[in-house]
């Protein structure tokens, strides 16, 4: 009974990613998209907190949004998987519910 969480906010201006990390349960997935993709980049103040969850959660980033913002795959935190919209849809389908951290 796992959940797909979505985060579309930059972690530097909003609490959505932190709150999502605080509430996601082991086995859940988090997809970062729109401005949420900044949470998937290495070397940021929140990167360690995100990386620390890569074992218990599945972490994804929407590639189109990351590319649009100049975040190359090589700059993604280890354990974050890029997906396209078809991948996003399949994540939503394969989890029991979505929880959208707006």
């Amino acid at each position: 009974m796992a959940t797909l969480h979505t985060v579309n906010k930059s972690p530097f201006g909003a609490s959505a990613l932190q709150s999502c990390l605080n509430h996601a349960k082991d086995g859940d997935a988090i997809l970062m998209f729109e401005d949420g993709v900044y949470g998937a980049a290495q070397g940021t103040i929140i990167a360690d907190a995100v990386a620390a969850k890569s074992g218990s959660l599945s972490l994804y980033v929407l590639k189109g949004d990351a590319d649009a913002r100049g975040i190359a795959d090589a700059r993604l935190i280890e354990g974050v998987t890029p997906v396209d919209y078809a991948g996003f849809v399949e994540l939503a389908a394969s989890h029991d519910r979505t929880n959208n951290w707006l």
Binding site: T3, H23, K25, N99, N100, L102
Partner: peptide, 18 residues
């Protein structure tokens, strides 16, 4: 508490966020 909130969220069929 936060863990109980997470548990409650994980029991839902439909989660609507505003």
């Amino acid at each position: 508490n936060r863990a109980e909130m997470a548990d409650m969220m994980a029991e839902q069929d439909v989660v609507l966020s505003f």
